[in-house]
Simulated assay, not measured.
Amino acid sequence: MNRRELITGAVGSLGLGLMTPAFAQEASEPAVMPPRIVTLRDALPAGEVHVAPDHFRLYWTLPEGKAWEYAIRVGRDDLYEAGEFYVGAKKKWPSWTPTPGMIEREPEKYEKYAEDGMEGGPDNPLGARALYLFQDGRGDTFLRIHGTNDVNTIGRAVSNGCAGLTNEHIKLLYKQVPEGARVVLYPKRATTRSG
């Protein structure tokens, strides 16, 4: 069994594919919902972040099988990276510099920020807050859980690999999640909406 099969099996056994409640929305409305506390089908350890990309949901786990549930956007195509991480840093109104991969894929959009990046603020792609994802032996992965002021991207696979919440929601999650918290990004099992 390879790592992908192991993680995919874990998703099924944890019930992440089944715990997202039905969410009715108009086709023209964004997939944003207020954060809420839900009951998980299978309890997970408290104090962890779990991202279910096929359902565009992030869960901050609580005691007694409960979790805060947030609507998110995820990485498009093969830019989404599944795995186990930890929060290695947290920043308010973080500055941002595109990765070399982003510049290579879309130079017309990102090359102007290659040298100096962009100061933190409302127009910054990382939004109001960011949780920086690290791995042992690798350090900073350049993956983030961060805010966005573009609420129309929530519920879609459009980012350069990061998980994004509205700026208001990331402010709440930022207060909840401490540095060092475990983060699990489950693999995509279905084609997710993009574009």
Rank of each mutant, 00 (worst) to 15 (best):
T99E: 09
M118T: 02
P107D: 09
T97L: 10
E119W: 04
E119K: 13
L126A: 03
R105C: 10
A128E: 06
A114L: 08
A114Q: 13
M118Q: 04
A130V: 06
G120A: 09
I103E: 10
G120M: 10
Y113A: 07
P122A: 02
W96E: 00
W96T: 00
W93I: 00
P94W: 11
W96Q: 01
D116L: 11
T97W: 09
K112S: 13
N124R: 01
E108H: 13
G137Y: 02
K112T: 08
G127D: 00
Y110P: 04
Y110K: 06
G120E: 09
E108T: 12
K109H: 07
E115R: 15
I103M: 13
M102G: 08
G101T: 13
D123I: 08
P122W: 00
A130Q: 03
L133K: 06
N124F: 00
R105Q: 14
D116I: 03
E104I: 03
N124C: 14
M118A: 01
M102E: 13
G120H: 06
E104N: 09
T97N: 10
G101C: 03
N124Q: 08
E115T: 15
P94R: 12
P100H: 10
N124M: 01
L133F: 09
Q135H: 07
A114S: 14
A114E: 12
Y132L: 05
W93C: 00
A114P: 04
E106K: 14
M102Y: 03
G121A: 02
R105D: 15
P100W: 10
E104W: 01
G117W: 03
E115G: 07
D136S: 11
Y110M: 07
Y113W: 14
D116A: 13
E115M: 11
N124Y: 00
K112Q: 15
A128F: 02
E119N: 11
N124S: 13
E104M: 10
K109N: 06
E108D: 15
D136N: 12
E111V: 07
E106M: 12
A130I: 05
R129A: 09
P94G: 09
D123T: 12
D116R: 14
E119C: 00
G121I: 03
D123S: 13
P100K: 11
P98Q: 05
Y113G: 05
P100Q: 10
K112D: 07
G101D: 14
P107W: 09
E115Q: 14
R138H: 11
E119G: 07
K109C: 01
M118F: 01
G127Q: 00
Y110S: 06
T99D: 12
